[in-house]
Design a binder for these strands. Structure first.
Lengths: 342, 342
DNA sequence: TTGTATGCGTTATCAC
DNA sequence: GTGATAACGCATACAA
C-alpha cells in the first residue's frame, strides 16, 4: 500500500508527530533529525496525503470556479482559457488548486452550496455575474464564505472585478469622432442586458462630451450576432440619412456590418467606419481589419484570484470592486476620412 | 462551528454510524430512522465534509486536467473550453470534480507526480501529448495510476484519444480534387511535428488514391501563422507553374493565403481554392468563407473522460486508443471551378 | 436494524 | 527537541 507518515516514523525510529513536524519544517526539530527523516522519506518515496492534511488542517487549499455549461456561453467561451490561466497564475504559487464546477441550471443555489461550499471542498469561490444570483450571495455571505464575482454585481454587496464597459463604449465612440466620423450608430445588445447598457452608456457619454445629439434610431438592439449586424447595418445604410460609422457589440455583429457595407458598395474606411467591442476571435482578420477593444482577460482572472485570496486571508474584509481598463486597438476599419476624397 | 455527523447523531439520538449509513442510504436502516435523521440533517443544515469522506473512502473523487500555461498554446487555447466541458459532462454525473493543474515546465515529471498523483489529490489524470513524456508515463504506469492522453502517444503503451488528422488531410485534399482542383499545395507545419506529419500523410494519401504525383516543392513547411501562409502562398502563386489550390494547417495560414491571392488579383474560388484545418476561430468569417475541417472538441473531452472513468473502475484494463473523425465543412473557398469560366 | 470500536493519514496540544 | 495522544469527520467490520 501507500507509504504513510507512520511508516516513515518507524523507519526513522521517531514518533510520527516528529515526522509531521519535519514535514512542516518546524523550528523545534534538530537539523540532524530533519535531514535523517527527509532522507528516509526520499528513499521510501513518500508523499503526504493531501486529503489527510486537509482534514487535519481544515483547509482544502482549493478554489472553485463556476461555469454554466448549458449557457453555451459564446461570450465566456473564448476568454475562458485566459481567465483560468490568470486565476491559476496567482493561486498556484500559493499552493491552491483550481476546481471547475458546473452549476446545475435547475437548482443553482442549493446544489453548489452543498456540493462545494458547505462540504468544505473549496476555500473560496470565483463565479461570474450571470451565474451568481441573490440567493447564492445571501447564502455565501451568511456563511462568511469568501467569493468574488467576475463581472459587476450591484443588487447586493459583493466583491467583483470587471472591465470598464462604459469607458470602452466611450473609447470606441470617441475614437470614431476623433477620426472625423460624425453620425455614429450602435448595433447589437438587448435592452436591459447589463453589459449592453453599460456599453451604450459610454457611447452616449461620448456624444455628450462632443456636444452631439443622441438620436434614438441610431441604436439598433438585438442579439449580438452576424445576422443582426448585417440586417441592421443594411437598413441603416439604406435609410434616407445613413450614419457614417457604427459601434458593434462584438466581432460577429461587426462582421455582419462589414458584409452589409460591402454589399452596398460602400467603402470601408471612407464612407463608413466600423469599431467593435472585443478583439476576439477575428477582428485582425477581417477585410479591412477591425478597430477593436481589447480586454486583458488574463488580468481579469488574475485580479479575481488576488481579490479572493485576500478575502480568504481576511474574511471580514469589506467588499471592494475593481474596474479594469480595456485597450483600444486601432485598425483600418476606422481610418481617417481624408478631406476631399471619398 | 460546522455541524458534523456527531451533532446529527446526538440530535437524532442515534449512533453516528447510523447517521453515516443514512448518508449512504444503506438498505439496513429502517425507513423511519432514515426519514427522521434526514429531517434533522435538513433542520440543522448539515452537509457532510467531503474531505473526511474522501479520507475514509480513500478516494478523492477528483480528476486532474493538466495544462501548460507557459506554452501559450495557441493550439489548445480556443478548444480548451469545449474540451473541458466535454470532460465535465461525463465525470460530473459520476460526482467527480475536475481539478486544473498547471505543470511546471522546469520539473514537469516529479512535481505533478507528487503534488497531484501520490498525494492522492486526484483519482485519475487527463493530459495531452505535448505535456506527457516518457518519464511521466513510466511513473504513472508503475503506480498503476489511471490516465489518458488527449492526442496520440506512441513511444509507450498509453491510452489516448485523438481525432484523425490523417483522415482529415485526406478529406480536405480529396474534396479539392473532387471539386476539380488538380495541383494542390500544402502550407504550414514544421517537419517532424507530429500533427503536421499526420495531416500531410493524409494529403499524400489522397494524391496516391487519385494517382496524382506528389511534388515536393508543393509542401511549404513553417510556423503555422498568417505571415507564413501569406509569404508561402505568394511565392507559390508567383512561380512559373502555380498550384490551383492549397491545404492550410490552420485558419491563420489560410488567412495569409487568402491575402496573398487577393493581392495578386487571383479570384477565390475560381483560379484558386483554399481548404483549411480547423473551423476555428474564423473560417466562416473570411471572404470568401473557408472550407474547413471541424473538430468535435467537446467529444474529444468527453471521450477522454469516459476512457479515464473506465480505467479508474478497472486499472488493469489494457490500454486502448481511439480516433475520432473530423467533419468537412464545405464553404465558398473551394467551390467548383465552372467549366469555361474563369 | 442499530450501536461500538477502530481506521483513514495528518496536525496539534500537551507532556516529558 | 521529541513523543504520546487526541482531534479532524466520516466509513465500516463486527457486535449486539
Amino acid at each position: 500500500m501507500k507509504v504513510t507518515i507512520q511508516d516513515i516514523a518507524k523507519a526513522a525510529n521517531v514518533a510520527k508527530s516528529t515526522v509531521s513536524k519535519v514535514l512542516n519544517d518546524s523550528p523545534k526539530i534538530s537539523r540532524e533529525t530533519k535531514e535523517r527523516v527527509r532522507e528516509i522519506m526520499r528513499q521510501m518515496n513518500y508523499t503526504p496525503s493531501s486529503i489527510a492534511t486537509r482534514l487535519a488542517k481544515r483547509s482544502s487549499r482549493n478554489i472553485g470556479l463556476l461555469i454554466d455549461m448549458t449557457h453555451e456561453s459564446e461570450y465566456m467561451n473564448p476568454f475562458f482559457y485566459n481567465i483560468m490561466v490568470g486565476i491559476e497564475s496567482v493561486i498556484g504559487p500559493q499552493t491552491y488548486e483550481l476546481t471547475i464546477a458546473n452549476v446545475q441550471p435547475n437548482d443553482p443555489e442549493r446544489d453548489i452550496m452543498n456540493r462545494l461550499v458547505r462540504s468544505g471542498r473549496i476555500d473560496g469561490l470565483i463565479t461570474n455575474n450571470v451565474i451568481l444570483n441573490d440567493g447564492m450571495v445571501d447564502s455565501l455571505t451568511e456563511l462568511g464564505f469568501p467569493f468574488v464575482s467576475m463581472g459587476e454585481y450591484e443588487s447586493r454587496n459583493v466583491p467583483w472585478v470587471d472591465y470598464d464597459n462604459e469607458a470602452g463604449g466611450a473609447m470606441l465612440t470617441g475614437h470614431l469622432l476623433a477620426q472625423g466620423y460624425a453620425d455614429i450608430a450602435f448595433v447589437g445588445g438587448e435592452s436591459g442586458e447589463k453589459i449592453y447598457e453599460k456599453r451604450h452608456r459610454g457611447y452616449a457619454e461620448a456624444h455628450r462630451k462632443a456636444s452631439l445629439p443622441l438620436r434614438g434610431e441610431r441604436t439598433v438592439n438585438g442579439v449580438a450576432d452576424e445576422n443582426h449586424g448585417y440586417r441592421s447595418t443594411l437598413e441603416l445604410l439604406q435609410s434616407d440619412r445613413p450614419p457614417d460609422a457604427v459601434v458593434c457589440m462584438n466581432n460577429y455583429v461587426a462582421f455582419g456590418a462589414l458584409k452589409a457595407a460591402e454589399q452596398l458598395g460602400i467603402p470601408i474606411p471612407g464612407r463608413f467606419g466600423i469599431a467593435t467591442f472585443d478583439d476576439f476571435p477575428f477582428s485582425p482578420y477581417t477585410n479591412p481589419p477591425l478597430t477593436s477593444l481589447f480586454i486583458h482577460t488574463f488580468e481579469l482572472g488574475a485580479t479575481a484570484g488576488r481579490m479572493l485570496l485576500e478575502r480568504i486571508d481576511d474574511p471580514a474584509l469589506p467588499s471592494s470592486s475593481l474596474l479594469l481598463q480595456p485597450e483600444l486597438i486601432v485598425r483600418r476599419s476606422t481610418e481617417r476620412i481624408e478631406a476631399g476624397r471619398e
